[in-house]
Write a protein that binds this DNA or RNA. Sequence first.
DNA 1: AACGGAATGTTATATTATAACATAACCATG
DNA 2: CATGGTTATGTTATAATATAACATTCCGTT
Lengths: 154, 154
Amino acid sequence: MHNCTTHSDCIAEALHRAEEICDKRDLRFTDVRRKVLELVWQSHGPIKAYDILDQLDQRIAAIKPPTVYRALDFLTENGLVHKINSLNAFVGCSHPLRHRECYFLICSDCGEAKECCNLDIVDAVAKTSSRNRFEIKHVTLEITGECGDCRGVH
Amino acid sequence: MHNCTTHSDCIAEALHRAEEICDKRDLRFTDVRRKVLELVWQSHGPIKAYDILDQLDQRIAAIKPPTVYRALDFLTENGLVHKINSLNAFVGCSHPLRHRECYFLICSDCGEAKECCNLDIVDAVAKTSSRNRFEIKHVTLEITGECGDCRGVH
DNA sequence: AACGGAATGTTATATTATAACATAACCATG
DNA sequence: CATGGTTATGTTATAATATAACATTCCGTT
Ligand SMILES: [Zn+2]
Ligand SMILES: [Zn+2]
Ligand SMILES: [Zn+2]
Ligand SMILES: [Zn+2]
């Protein structure tokens, strides 16, 4: 499902990046927020809010939905996590500083959501928006289909 | 919110187009499906499943959620309606025959979801997908922001 | 009329998300 | 280090969205 070399490093790096970003921006990277982000990265793929909740419950007593959703809101607002609307799931952003230019290739077979960037798409979206006198706040681009691995293509 | 000249005509046309398409494809454009599509077009903008349900209830006794969702599934699968995931809402497709190339400009102020087509975007998406050896089944592009009218731009 | 498949009805429940208010932690400032 | 304002979390309840599972009806074909 993902091909990071050492996944524990991959999680640690994501947490470290988040810490730095929050530091720089004077945001509070609290315990709850850190733990939620850690679980998101642990899955290293789309994870549902209630699955996070379940996994937290095992570690911390009595975490409730609002706590998880608040943490996810914080992480999403600050570009550390993406919400994938077509899955009602959340995934860690792998480059939080260029967070607005991302889109996803979502394999309906293996469930991977590959985060990509592409200037042509960003340009085309920007142009068509301005032609329509539309001021962009947020772009969601979710491409669903089947990935090469699942199709056996090489 | 929308600028069709005569909205009753606009609804009638949409229903007529749907009828033709279903005819051609040997699909059953049943009463429930017609009524749901009619309500979607009546709103002429994103409408929620349970709002459709409420409005149906006033006309038909005891319509239940599964009935509405089934009709919406049918209409979505056959390109007559789009689901807008970021709103959990549904909107009529204004050109069902070219249904796959659409995207939406969604104004968070007035709530309009303008359906657009743009070949540059379609191309860029197709290219990046094939570069990633990814076979597209479905593309969701939802651009949220503020429309020109709401910003007072002319 | 009898059959088979598709659509709808029905009951119940799963899943996703938020409102509203109480408490606790944090942090600037005196 | 007390005080007060702000931000975050805890807590309870419920809202909003969506589907499972099974029964019945409808509809075209034979
Ligand atoms: Zn990893
Ligand atoms: Zn795959
Ligand atoms: Zn209209
Ligand atoms: Zn607007």
